[in-house]
Design a protein around this nucleic acid. Structure first.
Lengths: 370, 370
DNA sequence: ACCGTAATTGTTAGCGTTAACATAGTGAGT
DNA sequence: ACTCACTATGTTAACGCTAACAATTACGGT
């Protein structure tokens, strides 16, 4: 109705060809950019016969817009296939609506699953997810990742690491955005929000299962020394052993790999075997079982083995692996929830650690009576 | 040296407190934002005693800057801990320096590895990587992902899918950004750039190994019908069989899961067993072997099994799995190379498919003579 | 009819950067 | 010495959006 009047009133600001858009406005031009430039707010405004600010208001769900006007604007948006320009928005609001995720070695099942959980939760909340995967956890790569994200002006950061090394590095940055550190099982630093699966509980579940099966000599093959998760599992292992009145053995330090598990299994086979082994993760358990079997031992006949993670396929290992399942999806979801809360409250939310779950399969059995 | 004089010259535009930055400029304020706002180009310019445009030139490596001036600017940048604002940059250049990656079910080893390859290559090239993982490949979620990225104004898109379903959907979008589709083993559509591992070759390698070991009755357990990769492997299987003068068997259709492999193995065990099975991926091979073993057969004694992917741990399966390794890292790298080339040439680069590699372990052996 | 108040909508001014053009220096060629 | 071309730098104007404020309209109470 007032469309033509408005369009001639202002010669479309830009030096290019502002008219290219209004011609044939009625045609079905979904994704624009076919001819002429992408539509901007002003174009929508012109078609709807309102000011660009009203369009902005509609997009931002301002209550100060008459329903009738809103309809008109929405129709114009649909007609033009208009999409708001995030860069312009970010520039003026100082918020990129992007979360950065730093992972370390995300080829592994745990980190990659966590990442996917984070991603889906973030997207649901209307945030973009920017990724940086580092192969090593040295302070140089941590800094490089942080730089990457600061530059990108992310609104929050999720750090998926199990290592201590990377940890200290975050401390001194003095960033003014919320940071969630996944898998840090220690007291949180000044401005970090810890989110984690209750590793200690997971370990206790595993050990308890072994104890209840009648095992007394239970050895723990743990992850690398600098891993928080690994440490927490060690704590859980010791606690549960003691709770059962059993003497914890010195832990054997591994590095999460099947290779390492295999080596440990081989050297164990050479000397006296415990009656049960609690491996820090499934790959190590896999290697371990391989070595044990190779040496002529039967799992679980001679030795029971419990893993941790429940990687895909663990069900079809031989024997099917008894293990502790972590809900990574939920973990990722919590990360985003924490970030979101920190962003609106300016306060650090406190989240209950996620409960892992014991999955009993066939790599564990009561000890052989001898 | 000229700092204080310059700061009084211009009352710092912003309504906040622009002076907060120039006071104590000599102190080590790496990441700024402690007090006052983040420094912007104008702040750097003031400290360096140049115009903001010169700072921009230095940042963009313009040759039209005297080395001496460049030094001064660089020093000011370091002193202030200045970081360029990507949103502002994106707004004016119409380029976000971000690539979007759509994955479907990236909990799996292949997609997630590819993603990491893409990420590292992109970051190396100075691009940000935005992620969207979809659990299903229906056209609704494809559209949703695309929308997500269009809105974000990504400069290019990497689609990691093996499915046909998602494919048609990309066609009609008429996006004006380059799109790389990973794993599409068919003729590329209008504006897509295909990047892939040579699946057909991989399959031939696997089958050839079996043939050379003396097998004649080789069955192929393939991936889902709508997967390009699966199809290409079927083609390779048939081609190699025929090349060896052998009759290809009808393929058995699976769905990539261990579960499915197990089911197939069970029903195979009930009837006559072939002398060798070529599984479409490692998880299926794992389930298959489990079922076969459970039924009392020996692998590779009674049946040889070859997998595809070389997932971590395959080395410690029982028996260690003979499989075909794909270099996902390289695949990701090629995706970015393709995108980059398309972006500068405006032409569609043609890349040679990546050669997979046969890894011979112990799940294959010459057939039993009977 | 007149004013105040609330409900809508419009106008203006940046956000921080780059592109385009303008301007000042610097030698070289005549 | 004087212009020409070139080099190095500065100035101005967008990019597309939101925030803050200004303006208009409608409505109820006096």
């Amino acid at each position: 109705m007032t469309t033509s009047g408005a369009s001639s009133a202002k010669p479309a600001a830009a030096g290019t060809e502002g008219a290219a858009i209004s011609d044939g406005a009625a045609s079905d031009r979904r994704h624009a950019g076919q001819r002429g430039r992408k539509p901007r707010m002003a174009d929508v405004a012109r078609v709807a016969g309102v000011s660009h600010q009203t369009v902005s208001r509609v997009l931002n769900h301002s209550p100060a817009v008459r329903p009738e006007t809103r309809e008109r604007v929405l129709a114009a948006i649909a007609e033009l296939g208009y999409r708001r320009n995030v860069a312009a928005r970010a520039l003026v609001t100082q918020a990129s609506r992007t979360f950065g995720v730093v992972t370390f070695g995300a080829e592994l099942y745990g980190p990659s699953s966590t990442l996917m959980g984070v991603e889906s939760a973030a997207r649901e909340a209307g945030y973009y997810v920017s990724l940086a995967n580092m192969s090593t956890v040295d302070s140089k790569s941590v800094h490089s990742a942080i730089d990457h994200f600061i530059e990108q002006d992310v609104d929050g950061l999720v750090v998926v690491t199990t290592s201590i090394e990377g940890d200290d590095t975050f401390e001194s940055l003095g960033l003014d955005i919320p940071i969630v550190v996944v898998g840090a099982g220690r007291k949180p630093r000044a401005d970090e929000i810890p989110v984690a699966v209750d590793q200690e509980l997971g370990a206790r579940l595993a050990v308890r299962h072994l104890v209840e099966s009648g095992h007394e000599e239970i050895v723990h093959l743990t992850g690398p020394r600098d891993s928080f998760d690994a440490r927490a599992r060690v704590v859980g292992y010791r606690a549960e052993m003691e709770a059962a009145g059993l003497k914890p053995h010195p832990v054997i330090v591994g590095d999460w790999t099947s290779q390492q598990g295999y080596e440990v299994g081989k050297s164990m086979s050479a000397s006296a075997l415990p009656s049960a082994i609690f491996a820090g993760n499934d790959p190590m358990a896999l290697g371990l079982i391989y070595a044990l079997t190779e040496a002529g031992y039967d799992v679980p006949g001679d030795v029971s083995v419990v893993g941790f993670d429940d990687v895909p396929g663990a069900e079809y290992y031989r024997p099917p692996l008894t293990t502790v399942r972590q809900n990574f999806e939920e973990l990722g979801r919590q990360c985003i929830a924490a970030l979101l809360k920190a962003l609106e409250d300016k306060g650090k939310p406190h989240l209950a650690p996620i409960k892992p779950e014991l999955v009993i399969r066939q790599s564990t059995a009561p000890p052989r009576r001898d």
